[in-house]
């Protein structure tokens, strides 16, 4: 069986997460929720700790805490604190609380690094099933609600006038975010999940004319980073999660350079054409 090869499992896991993160990452970027994604991910470590303490599944623990975190932030926002302040407080206190809670887990030796930075090479068949199940669920949710989510992202009143409840769409987005965090934990770890959401989407922006094109491009960038990062980490024996994110960052930088070079080229060509016109008239 091909699934017996750990590198194949790792590749599939990375691709699955990249696919689910693409539409979600774009929405997060468009709605300026980058820090929200970060905070949800940070809260995941508390979920890990609670799952270990209660000996339940890590996936379930992370999902519940991430959802709880997102709900609390949604409820508290607009009650006197700025969103970024609130998220800063929640993200880091839940991370700290999670780290403290983990220290109470006796008996088992926990490799905390695996949760902070991911351990994609250790993805088992069951993990793979969870990752692809979660990714498929998120992609189905996104596909189902896409038009509504996009309209609500554009403008809340415009959504209302079209019979869309922006609050409900926000809830679906939050739920999907929690699922992706729970799923991506094994792949890149809590500290880098937000990077996997945001960097491919930001890279894709440069080359996209429509929202859907940006999602497709983000998926391609994410998959390239996952597959390429995995290979690179294998060759150079570097930590896998951070290598994947580093490669995504390199792609982002490359996209920026290409976009600027293209703009410069256009300007040069336009000014040359202008000069030719001027000399032609003279």
């Amino acid at each position: 069986m091909i699934f017996d090869d750990f590198l194949v499992r790792a590749t599939l896991a990375g691709v699955g997460v990249a696919l689910a993160a693409a539409p979600l990452g774009c929405l997060v970027v468009w709605r300026r929720m980058a820090f929200f994604g970060d905070a949800t991910a940070h809260a995941a470590i508390l979920g890990v700790a609670l799952a270990l303490l209660l000996s339940t599944s890590i996936f379930a623990g992370v999902l519940v805490v991430s959802l709880l975190m997102a709900t609390i932030v949604s409820l508290l926002s607009g009650k006197g604190y700025a969103m970024d302040t609130l998220l800063g407080v929640m993200a880091h206190s839940s991370l700290a609380l999670g780290l403290v809670a983990v220290s109470f887990v006796s008996g088992v030796r926990i490799d905390l690094m695996a949760y902070l930075f991911g351990d994609i090479l250790a993805v088992g068949k069951a993990d793979l099933a969870v990752i692809w199940g979660g990714a498929a669920l998120v992609m189905a949710l996104m596909g189902w609600r896409w038009s509504r989510l996009l309209t609500a992202t554009l403008n809340a009143d415009l959504a209302h006038a079209s019979g869309i409840d922006p609050q409900r769409e926000q809830l679906i987005l939050t739920l999907s975010l929690a699922i992706v965090v729970a799923v991506a934990l094994k792949v890149v770890g809590v500290l880098l999940i937000a990077a996997l959401l945001i960097i491919p989407a930001a890279t894709a922006r440069t080359f996209s004319r429509t929202p859907e094109a940006m999602v497709v491009a983000a998926a391609l960038v994410g998959m390239t980073a996952a597959v390429g990062g995995l290979q690179t980490a294998y060759w150079f024996d570097t930590p896998t999660g951070p290598t994947i994110v580093s490669l995504a960052a390199a792609l982002f930088a490359l996209a920026g350079v290409i976009a600027n070079a293209r703009r410069l080229l256009w300007r040069v060509m336009a000014s040359r054409a202008g000069r030719r016109d001027a000399s032609g008239r003279a």
């Binding site: 468009w30 004319r209 929202p211």
Partner: peptide, 27 residues
């Protein structure tokens, strides 16, 4: 059926959008 034109629509710079795509939202 209500058609609504908002006061001013701020489109985030990170959201690529063509006129014809906007016209197809949400249906």
């Amino acid at each position: 059926v209500i058609g609504y034109v908002p006061q001013r629509l701020h489109l985030d710079a990170t959201l690529p959008m063509t006129v014809s795509r906007l016209m197809r939202l949400p249906r």
